[in-house]
């Protein structure tokens, strides 16, 4: 399978504190890659480099290269707005904007594309269907996105992210603030979405990683200890640390 993203020699710093050490990782296209590891191991930090969202904070800094379709996106010349159109992100807590359900999903469409009113309406429906939310909200498109339940809000955010037609979806613990039933829905959705998108998910939940991902990277103290097929990582890991973590002996 082709690699969509290749991280090479990534080092990351919060001020003078180094959080990532020499990360190398290949993300396969149209697959789900799970990033696991104990709290504070740098897995979210690693993910936040892929759309350069860390740039919001003045003291955060990265060195190394991140190739997406062969282009080093950490290069200053790559426009960050273009990068973020191509690489969408879902956060731990749902982040609906303070506007209607419809406008939430229409926002990225109006932002990036020149579309007619009816084209926007079509694409909003398509995105909401893509996020398995259409049936639940089709009668309340005009009510506030904040009025939905937590699980619905998260799927609204997924709909908003895929409405922009990205190629990569970054998910930073997308179900950790969601109840188990809604979590199951989102997991089913992700398996559906990987046909169209390349998905990287950071998760605390090892069963979740085992259930849905094709590849798994195990992070520990800012380093990638082991990376490989999910099945192999969870049944027969090469590294002792990986085995201890997945069997629950630490972390």
């Amino acid at each position: 399978m082709a690699n969509k993203i290749s991280a090479r020699n990534i080092n990351f710093y919060y001020g003078s504190h180094q959080a990532l050490f020499d990360n190398n990782l290949d993300i396969a296209e149209h697959a789900i890659t799970a990033v696991i590891g104990p709290s504070g191991c740098g897995k979210s930090t690693h993910l936040r480099i892929y759309n350069r969202i860390y740039e919001l904070y003045r003291d955060q800094r990265v060195t190394g290269s991140l190739f997406i379709d062969g282009v080093d996106v950490l290069n200053e010349k790559v426009d960050v707005l273009e990068l973020r159109r191509k690489v969408g992100m879902i956060f731990q807590k749902p982040t609906p904007f303070p506007m209607s359900v419809f406008d939430n999903v229409a926002y990225p469409l109006r932002l990036h594309y020149r579309l007619s009113r009816s084209e926007i309406a079509d694409k909003v429906e398509e995105a909401l269907r893509g996020a398995s939310l259409w049936e639940e909200v089709k009668d309340k498109l005009k009510s506030s996105g904040l009025a939905l339940s937590g699980g619905q809000q998260q799927r609204l955010c997924i709909a908003r992210a895929i409405a922009a037609s990205p190629e990569v979806l970054l998910m930073d613990e997308p179900t950790s603030a969601i109840d188990p039933v809604a979590t199951l829905k989102i997991e089913e959705l992700m398996v559906e979405l990987k046909k169209r998108f390349t998905i990287v998910i950071v998760t605390h939940n090892m069963q979740q990683a085992a259930r849905i991902s094709d590849f798994t990277a195990f992070f520990y103290k800012g380093r990638i200890v082991e990376f490989g097929d999910t099945e192999k990582i969870f049944t027969n890991p090469d590294e002792k640390q990986t085995e201890e973590y997945i069997t629950g002996r630490f972390g």
Binding site: I53, L56, E82, M89, F91, K93, T95, H112
Partner: peptide, 29 residues
């Protein structure tokens, strides 16, 4: 306003100005 809302706005490809005026300020209006 939670930092994640700011990040969500930027992560969609909004400029800093738009994220602040349209999303953060609206949310705190």
């Amino acid at each position: 306003v939670p930092a994640s809302l700011r990040e969500a706005a930027l992560a969609l490809g909004m400029t800093r100005t738009r994220a602040i005026l349209r999303i953060v300020c609206t949310s705190a209006r």
